[in-house]
Amino acid sequence: MSLLVVEGLRKAFGGVRAVDGISFRVEAGESVAIIGSNGAGKTTCFNMLCGQLKPDAGRIMLAGRDIAGLSPHRIWRRGLSRTFQVAATFRSMRVRENVQLALLSHRRRTHGLWRPVVGLPAAEADALLAQVGLAARAEQPVAALPYADRKRLEVAMALANAPRLLLLDEPTAGVAAGERRALMDLISDLVRTRNIGVLFTEHDMDVVFGHGERVIVLHEGRLVAEGPPEAIRADPIVREIYLGTGEQTC
């Protein structure tokens, strides 16, 4: 059984078919990239997987159970975790507290009224922070973190519920070129050791071809190509509509 099975996913906004019948699979431990120009339907597709949008039609089976149309917090509890294109962290908290909150949520303890957060799973939070290389910054306010470190923090938060599937929305966007590789290597290591399936969108082709074991190409809401990176790189249709080097473009 595949970890994620998407079948016939559709979503229209006022007559515009943003996602027009997409089907694909992701296996456990596999890393899949979704590419496509702006407006191709990547973000809409992502938002449906995470529960921020309700699909008009189609099924989203996570480990055999349909999650289509559930609210984001329910989907998270089923084992799908995500990061955001613009790193979303809790800016009024310290670095460690961000991770603590994610851990508390995983244990359904966010309604605790009495014991202060300070002492709650701090050791585990620190362990997660150490894995993303932020151990030394645990006490700092998030606002003081450089942007690339906020992306790392988001990864640590996303791992707090021991997810089965991780969705990364442009994981290296806004990160300086020199730090991209380190960030992606980190993510690859973490998911490999935990056998997590990864689905990511990305504009940086180095990242796509370097870290995606399989690449899915969307165009105008449809899946137009799917395959290993070498095949996609050579695919003439993909070259024309996305990579922009087709012969008949003008």
Binding site: S37, G39, E240, G246, Q248, T249, C250
Partner: peptide, 10 residues
């Protein structure tokens, strides 16, 4: 030219 069909781009 982003996201436009080739004919429109021309």
């Amino acid at each position: 030219s982003q996201g436009l069909a080739p004919r429109v781009v021309t």
